[in-house]
């Protein structure tokens, strides 16, 4: 069953007087459990596409179906709830809250859901261990390296067992060794939990890891390769 169906989606932006067509009638189908990379040069529309799937942007034409639900049919509150329950995000700049510890940064997304305090604690410790940060739960981001911070971010994305995780250039701020480790981690999570991973990136390493590579250029898909 396709978890995500993108049908003839267009997105335009107005910068001053010019109209920029970020996406031009893009269509794509994604199955559950895929480890997919959307690649392309800057301005190709990959971040836009990710944002649309993530329900944090509005489309101008076409429709995106997630679990057969059209996202345009959801109002703001429903979208927020949708993200809360079903989506995980990983950002290039980690975006952790600096005044919270690693534990708190992860657990807070769970506290947005209706879960008991005990359950939150269990799952948070579990996922932090999974990402290899056992023992560092009480550290604040300022006391963690870039790689460690990104692990916290991954933990945060994973801890609510989302169907889909959207990652926008997750390794861009990391050195290649750390980046590789992070990728391996995400691949492991993908295999273990069958979470669908969508990357927007122009990092060759990610593209190599991906089981499917979609290339965008000037707002249109130019290639769609499945490997392994």
């Amino acid at each position: 069953m396709s978890i995500i169906r993108i049908e003839k989606v267009s997105r335009n932006y107005k910068t001053g007087a010019t109209l920029v067509k970020a996406l031009k009638k893009v269509s794509l189908t994604i199955e559950a459990g895929e480890f997919l990379s959307i690649a392309g040069p800057s301005g190709s529309g990959k971040t836009t596409l990710l944002n649309l799937i993530g329900c944090i942007d509005e489309l101008d034409e076409g429709e995106i179906f997630i679990n057969d639900t059209a996202i345009s049919s959801m109002d703001k509150i429903e979208k927020t709830a949708f993200r809360r329950n079903n989506l995980g995000f990983i950002f290039q700049t980690y975006n952790l809250i600096p005044v919270l510890s690693a534990y708190e940064n992860v657990s807070f997304v769970l506290s947005l859901l209706d879960i008991s305090e005990r359950e939150i604690k269990r799952r948070t410790y579990e996922v932090l261990m999974e990402v290899g940060l056992e023992g560092m739960e009480d550290r604040r981001p300022s006391k963690l390296s870039g790689g460690q911070q990104q692990r916290v971010a991954i933990a945060r994305a994973l801890v609510k067992n989302p169907q889909i995780i959207l990652a926008d250039e997750p390794t861009a701020n990391l050195d290649s060794k750390t980046g590789a480790e992070i990728l391996k981690l995400m691949k492991r999570m993908n295999e273990k939990y069958h979470t669908t991973f969508l990357f927007s990136t122009h990092d060759q390493m990610i593209m190599d890891y991906a089981s499917r590579l979609v290339q965008l250029h000037d707002g249109a898909i130019v290639s769609d390769e499945r490997r392994r």
């Binding site: 809360r84 329950n85 945060r156």
Partner: peptide
């Protein structure tokens, strides 16, 4: 601002 965007992206309600 980015933190704000992150919280909203992660599904935290505007009200909260």
């Amino acid at each position: 601002m980015r933190e704000l965007g992150m919280m909203r992206a992660l599904g935290m309600r505007d009200r909260d």
